[in-house]
């Protein structure tokens, strides 16, 4: 439950950040297919576009939202606050805000793309907004973990090595790795390491992560992004398997053997009875 709440908090923070950075487009009662400016999008970047659905009618209506008709492949979904929605009801004479969340999947095939957002009213009336999307190829940053999987004992630390690549056409400065770690885990070294990469260059950096003593054995994921002054990379997840340090187990076995020996001695000395 706690992690759920945390993730909600995180998501809402994210949403607020995104919303504040993006221009707003109105989806009015006008049916004319006009182009509105959409956004600049780098690969791997998340953007949210705020749209308004205005219900000028005297009765409340429910609108079903769809988006598509683009050349590139995007991951798209609508949300209000942080909850995903497919349709929404707008009271008579008012407007509701809905966010369109966009992420570019893979590489862009065209740099100037368009996206059609359709709002279908429950009585069949359609509103269409065309958004222009400009793919920014200047800045692109990707990060990869050198190891697919990391094993670590609780109470010890593990080294995570990353290769960071500048895929764009401009220099990237002050590249740092930002970790998102499980509860009580802590990056003890490497958070401050800074890299500057020219286009096409690849750099490696290492981060030391302390796993707390109290961590019980299991599989966890540590998430990382590379962030430069200009742009952030997409999030990568590294599975980490934590094994309990065996000391307690050996202690238990040792004590058991001790007791077994003692029992044996007792039986030897006094015999069965």
């Amino acid at each position: 439950m706690k992690s759920f709440k945390k993730s909600i908090l995180l998501l809402s923070l994210l949403a607020i950040m995104l919303v504040s950075s993006v221009s707003t487009v109105f989806a009015a009662e006008v049916s004319a297919p006009e182009f509105s400016t959409g956004c600049n999008l780098s690969s791997g970047e998340n953007k949210a576009l705020s749209l308004f659905i205005q219900n000028a009618d005297v009765a409340p209506h429910s609108y079903t939202l769809t988006a598509g008709d683009s050349a590139n492949s995007y991951e798209l979904y609508f949300s209000t606050n942080v909850a995903t929605v497919k349709s929404m009801t707008v009271p008579a004479g008012t407007g509701n805000q809905v966010d369109l969340n966009i992420t570019l999947n893979g590489n862009a095939s065209v740099n100037e793309d368009k996206l059609t957002v359709k709002a279908v009213r429950d009585d069949g009336k359609e509103n269409i907004v065309n958004l222009s999307i400009i793919i920014n190829k200047d800045y692109a940053l990707s990060v990869k973990s050198m190891l697919d999987k990391i094993n670590v004992l609780s109470g010890k630390s593990a080294d995570f090595t990353f290769s960071v690549m500048n895929n764009g056409s401009q220099d990237l400065n002050n590249i740092k790795i930002k970790p998102e770690l499980p509860y009580k885990w802590f990056a003890s070294q490497g958070t401050e390491a800074i890299m500057n990469l020219k286009p096409g260059e690849t750099g490696t950096t290492t981060m030391k992560i302390d796993v707390p003593n109290s961590q019980i054995a299991g599989n966890f994921t540590a998430k990382f992004t590379a962030v430069s002054d200009e742009i952030g990379s997409s999030l990568i997840s590294v599975p980490v398997t934590v094994k309990t340090s065996s000391n307690i187990g050996y202690w238990m076995i040792g004590i058991l053997i001790l007791i077994a020996g003692f029992t044996l001695v007792q039986f030897k000395r006094h015999g069965r009875r």
């Binding site: 988006a67 598509g68 995007y74 991951e75 798209l76 979904y77 609508f78 995903t84 497919k86 999947n105």
Partner: peptide, 10 residues
């Protein structure tokens, strides 16, 4: 299936 219909990959 609802999320897939929205085109959401993750």
């Amino acid at each position: 299936s609802f999320l897939q219909s929205l085109g959401k990959a993750e």
